[in-house]
Design a protein around this nucleic acid. Sequence first.
DNA 1: CCAAAAGTGTTCTCCATACACCCATGC
DNA 2: GCATGGGTGTATGGAGAACACTTTTGG
Lengths: 230, 230
Amino acid sequence: MPYRYDYPRPALTVDCVVFGLDDKDLKVLLIERTSDPFAGRWALPGGFVEMDESLDAAARRELREEAGLEEVFLEQLYTFGAVDRDPRGRVVTVAYYALVNTVEHPLRAASDARAAAWFPVLSPPALAFDHAEILRVAHQRLRGKVSYQPIGFELLPERFTLSQLQQLYETILERRLDKRNFRRKVLSLGFLEETAHTQRDVSHRAARLYRFNEAKYRRLVEKGFLFELI
Amino acid sequence: MPYRYDYPRPALTVDCVVFGLDDKDLKVLLIERTSDPFAGRWALPGGFVEMDESLDAAARRELREEAGLEEVFLEQLYTFGAVDRDPRGRVVTVAYYALVNTVEHPLRAASDARAAAWFPVLSPPALAFDHAEILRVAHQRLRGKVSYQPIGFELLPERFTLSQLQQLYETILERRLDKRNFRRKVLSLGFLEETAHTQRDVSHRAARLYRFNEAKYRRLVEKGFLFELI
DNA sequence: CCAAAAGTGTTCTCCATACACCCATGC
DNA sequence: GCATGGGTGTATGGAGAACACTTTTGG
């Protein structure tokens, strides 16, 4: 391939679809745009890739700068490069999706005071650019991936009840699951561990709290164990 | 996000991992580099994204220009953006993978007479840049995807025997499959159709030829049918 | 004592797996 | 007639799905 430092280059950005769980709804984090194009509309957090940072680093930096989020689950989603996706010129964006548990990672206002807020994934406001399409692809990926990789735990606090976990799957997969079958299945996988704790301050029998044991999971994967949950 | 047309931008390329089936081996298409860096080494076909073409279009153009391949199965794989992946400067590449059946899509020499050739995926030569890593990720994606999406057919001629199909799966998954179970399963899925033809010029009983019926497959998918093969 | 969610077993059906022999064809 | 792959059926075990009641706790 010829090498052409003098040729025009597309601009390169990253955009992040941040999923969070709020009560029983799956939410996405959006930032309000303050300037044109699409001033006043909501958009995915994101921005330009610097010359000396990797794509992953750029995505993490944007999450930190725009929402105060650090050390969250983050994975590359897809790269969107339609010629006309930005009215100002050629901009290619590498989209990521992130999973955060909203309890242990509360939002911090963006440094430049732009609004950041959670919106229902199933009924988001009108979005800037092609961000509705990016959100759609991210949601589809999450639904597809949650059944065969233990990423759902990223949306929950460190300790959670089996009912919380079941509700999470019911929300993401958009269907009801059988309580007994769900518990038997998820416990049989062997990477959840009971903690000594139970729920507090609930006006009914307190449920046992469980924890995802990443080390156990890794060991199972290394042994060739492929799990499928639901 | 601020908009900065005057800031330095990474260069943007596409690279294609082209898989083909040759006898019973899975092969990858490589191009010999003629200039530095990595002159003389083999590399994935690829090149710069033009300002007025989408990423998919750039990948298809490179396949056409560098190998004479048209109308093949092509899907985006992952975007590689490590800061030091190209010794000449910052270059981000959007990797694609393609599946071609080498019978109906013979290679054509690249327009600029650079060598193009097929190499075993399991024992490729030393590759330029981070292309070994890209190949690894593509191979992993192919292995993972072939069991739950009917993409394997792209590697076969339009009409194929069930034994050819089984060999393909055995090659990609790197394990032996039971003939009776494989045939029962794949036929039960309902998107293969018998043709009136059989094999020719074989010194044993001629096998029936089948064809993948994409329309049938689409109808099944729309009905919510999720297939899993093996 | 009442409301609310936690927790728990069994049955049935279906699908994946394991397995071996006869058939058609070319040479 | 022999070598080569083509083509076929059955039995078994395990996992997913359906299904309802008792227990614990707070108010």
